[in-house]
Design a protein around this nucleic acid. Sequence first.
DNA 1: CCCCCCATGATTGCTGATAATTTTAAACAT
DNA 2: ATGTTTAAAATTATCAGCAATCATGGGGGG
Lengths: 217, 217
Amino acid sequence: MQMLKSNHKDAYALILDAIDIGVYKPGDRLVESELADRFGVSRTPIREALQRLETQSLLTRDGRSLIVASLDHNQLAELYVVRTELEGLAARLAARHAAPEEIRVLREMVQEDRALLGDPGALARANRRFHKQIHLASHNRYLVQQLDLVHRSMALLATTSLAVDGRGELALEEHEAIVSAIEKADGEAAYQALKHHLSAAFETRLKSDATAAQAAE
Amino acid sequence: MQMLKSNHKDAYALILDAIDIGVYKPGDRLVESELADRFGVSRTPIREALQRLETQSLLTRDGRSLIVASLDHNQLAELYVVRTELEGLAARLAARHAAPEEIRVLREMVQEDRALLGDPGALARANRRFHKQIHLASHNRYLVQQLDLVHRSMALLATTSLAVDGRGELALEEHEAIVSAIEKADGEAAYQALKHHLSAAFETRLKSDATAAQAAE
DNA sequence: CCCCCCATGATTGCTGATAATTTTAAACAT
DNA sequence: ATGTTTAAAATTATCAGCAATCATGGGGGG
């Protein structure tokens, strides 16, 4: 008999979700007993989940206790450099190794995501799916894993650049260019297109952060 | 008063060492109670260390229990692709961002490591130091972290390519070329030199593995 | 009035015990 | 001999409680 999919996820996923949703924001302290109460388990599984999150750099130590990691400007820039290189590599490999079916899935995604242009949240999820599909198409498990880590770190960023006016349209065009390059099996073009895509996204983020910072003064 | 450096490392380091030394080899099952006995602590810190090692892919699940991960031929190839790209990036960034002092340290390493040419073990450690120094010179903390992960995965490989006849000399020449490129602040040359270095190392490994496999028939 | 010291409470680290699950192996039937 | 069922052993997952450490705040002392 098939086990019903329990709605009782494990502590790791629960805490990750809580961070994603914004229950805990960068800088917040995570107290084991509090989390244990909130999720109705004892401290042991909480501790283990916290340590896993720590090794993935989503949490960081402040003295003896753990706080949600935050990305300052420098760290964000450093993350983007690494992300760009890894995603670029994934695109290059995808152009070389993707199965025809995988490419078709990518193309369909680009089509279907047009329907989401009004909804930044849905667009952000679609964007993640799209990139994940490229990672998988690289057929390099290590790369997929490293990129998972990178993306998990980006969960610390509250905003998505896709919410900025007009960025959604541009991003989809860039996706289209990436898929076209992969279709042509042109690794270098795919690499460049993905690099351009992330560069544009980073630039948008910096601009919107600058505006927000000014507004906060 | 300064605490004496305790010879009682934490469970994580102890298990990692045990894997490094070869007490536990890829495929071996790690039993919590056995490790707890061996290191004289209770199962809880062992469990936490095991989970950390699992998230770093040094251990993998086989059903409910953990075994030391192993790298088959494909996984090794995939790892090398990612490693090459990341180390190449580090070299390029180091050429751009390294402080003069950091470059001098690199140059000294190349000089001093000549003295170790007879001792593959010492050479392997020196090699790790050298690469780590380049990582740091990139001044990108994310990259340093990702590369740490990659190198930890390589701990699963029992042999070092530096033990192969003549490889030590070649490797040091390649190190020399890398440092020269960084000195000239020529990022592209540094990138290419590092790529070449790793490519040569990988090739050496494949050859020696092939020989060993034949001998085992 | 401000600063330092100590006591108190909060929080993490660890232990031993218990529950749940899986693996092992042994007896049995085919 | 081989496959299958069932019971026992081993192992992992979780829990509640204790010990150690750290932060906080409330008095003295200057």
